[in-house]
Design a protein around this nucleic acid. Sequence first.
DNA 1: AAAAGTGCTTTGTTTTTCAAAGTTAAATAA
DNA 2: TTATTTAACTTTGAAAAACAAAGCACTTTT
Lengths: 98, 98
Amino acid sequence: MKNPIADLNKIFDSRIRLGVMSILVVNDEIGFNDLKQMLELTDGNLASHLNTLEQAEFIKVHKGFIGRKTSTTYAITALGKQAFKAHLDALEKMIKKL
Amino acid sequence: MKNPIADLNKIFDSRIRLGVMSILVVNDEIGFNDLKQMLELTDGNLASHLNTLEQAEFIKVHKGFIGRKTSTTYAITALGKQAFKAHLDALEKMIKKL
DNA sequence: AAAAGTGCTTTGTTTTTCAAAGTTAAATAA
DNA sequence: TTATTTAACTTTGAAAAACAAAGCACTTTT
């Protein structure tokens, strides 16, 4: 039998990063605070997970303004979409034996 | 919006424990070594994850014999089946927006 | 002017992961 | 019968990851 977990992406082992991605898949752009509230996280915790996803180029950051107030938003990249989908496929394959 | 990761079970954040469960769902009984080979793990690593799953009462251990040689097998419990299913449902709900 | 919000970074602790080595007991090979 | 091997661990210790809390620069609200 083939190793069933080999195709899972390590980056998505984390529930938080999984949550971020699942939100970004359906929201073109989302703000730091919205994510923070949705996922019920502290600033530091969220920021570091976002950082990990950004390093992997699975998300991109957009720093803009609402009026003259800064507003940071996050969006999924093409690579991110692809990697997330691949991960979900791997998960599905793993459990479709059910 | 409701926190999409709240219903994910922390125990299944680990790819390895996820892998063990997915194997146990389709195999009534499986040996330590088989798991080790399927998941490509060291003894210690596998043993500790199995321990975590056992603590949670998601799997049960059966120590028996093949002839007079010890043989340890693992099986999923009813609770484990339920928890795993709930986790997968939560995952599915999270991403079914796709 | 003071308080509060945004989006971080930094710091430090706790938790988790993992490999490697040691262990006990039995099986098999020499 | 002695030596080696295999099974299934446990223990040890190091590295990585998760996380909360505090600090910070800047801005808006009161």
